[in-house]
Amino acid sequence: MPKPKPAQKPVEELTYEEALAELEGIVEALEGEQNPLDESLKLFERGQALILRCGGLLETAQLKVQKLAGETLVDFEDESQ
């Protein structure tokens, strides 16, 4: 866990990678340093929220395909099907 804590974003705004990285940091912080108990419990709660966020993202993940059309991106519909 980086010492100067960045302002925490609500978990709903995190990407999978962000949520996972933060979760990893929390687990390491709990494993390593001796934090005050209430801080540890806050970390635990945050960790649980992050796990829910990640799990939700995995459950609902849908491959998003866009096609390059000139300089812009448009949603791609498989023309071969």
């Binding site: 999978y16 993202l57 849908q62 491959l63 395909v65 866009q66 096609k67 390059l68 991106l73 791609f76």
Partner: peptide
Amino acid sequence: PLASVILA
């Protein structure tokens, strides 16, 4: 399926 795809 988490990934996004850009087709050129």
